[in-house]
């Protein structure tokens, strides 16, 4: 499913968080939204997920404006927020059942999908445990299972690997990539960690609310001169901050 962000600007009062952001995502693969803290990534996720109303510009999902069809857009979206949104005192299964109900799934349908997602996330044995008892990596897996329950075609992960150890981060990243391959999911993976991006990934670089570059990661990092993505990101961010002559 295609995602097209067109001329989106957003301000918190006086503070401009996004300025004329334009980019498109490649369907059926992991699209990295790269930027330092405060770049506007979470604001963009909040706009995509309709937690914030668009102030300027539009976002199209398969050509459908989320401004005009917000509820149709929400049916296509699964979101894993930066901050955990699981109810810690409910069990894994109860958390999933709550989400399924919010999407209008019947109990029988929800039970089938929960079983399938838990099996896929290898959480079947822990389904009756309270979320409070799970470690960070497992909680993230529960959140991904939850985000996929209503079978969305787009998955937004807002700094989903923050707070995880190196091994869990790598496992999560690989897991999401496998989901793209298996289900043709379009994923937006926001991060400030460059090692989570592969050379073949489409990347949008955001800094201070502006898109500073977009393209395939290896093309952006100027492979011929062996410049790393990190160097490229710094160079492009610096260039975007320099005043125009």
């Amino acid at each position: 499913m295609s995602i097209c962000v067109q001329g989106v600007s957003f301000a918190y009062g006086e503070r401009q968080a996004l300025r004329q952001v334009d980019f498109s995502c490649q369907p059926g693969c992991l699209n990295a939204l790269l930027g330092p803290n405060g770049a506007g990534k979470s604001t963009l996720v909040a706009l995509l997920s309709r937690l914030y109303d668009l102030q300027q510009g539009d976002i199209l999902l398969d050509g459908l404006s989320i401004r005009q069809h917000p509820r149709a857009a929400l049916r296509q979206l699964g979101v894993v927020f930066q901050q955990s949104t699981l109810d810690l005192d409910l069990s894994v299964r109860q958390n999933l059942a709550y989400h399924a109900a919010l999407h209008g799934l019947s109990r029988r349908e929800a039970a089938q999908r929960i079983d399938a997602e838990l099996a896929r996330q290898q959480l079947g044995e822990r389904q009756h445990e309270r979320v409070r008892a799970l470690n960070g990596g497992h909680r993230r897996r529960v959140e991904i299972a939850r985000a996929l329950l209503h079978q969305p075609r787009i998955l937004l992960l807002d700094e989903a690997s923050v707070g995880l150890d190196q091994a869990s981060r790598r496992a999560l990243n690989q897991h999401v990539r496998a989901l793209c391959d298996e289900q043709q999911l379009t994923v937006i993976w926001t991060t400030h960690l460059l090692d989570e991006i592969l050379p073949s990934d489409p990347v949008v670089m955001l800094n201070r609310g502006r898109v500073v570059a977009q393209g395939q990661a290896d093309a952006l990092s100027n492979g011929a001169t062996q410049e790393s993505l990190s160097d490229a990101f710094e160079r492009l961010s610096r260039a975007s901050e320099e005043p125009a002559l």
Binding site: R71, D87, D89, L90, Q94, A97, Y98, A100, A101, L102, H103, G104, L105, S106, R107
Partner: peptide, 24 residues
Amino acid sequence: MTAAQYLNCLQGVMQREWLRFFQQ
């Protein structure tokens, strides 16, 4: 969305409140 989906949602929200209540 159908009426059944609205009803499923209502049941889900109520079930969550029940669970939270009985746990507290």
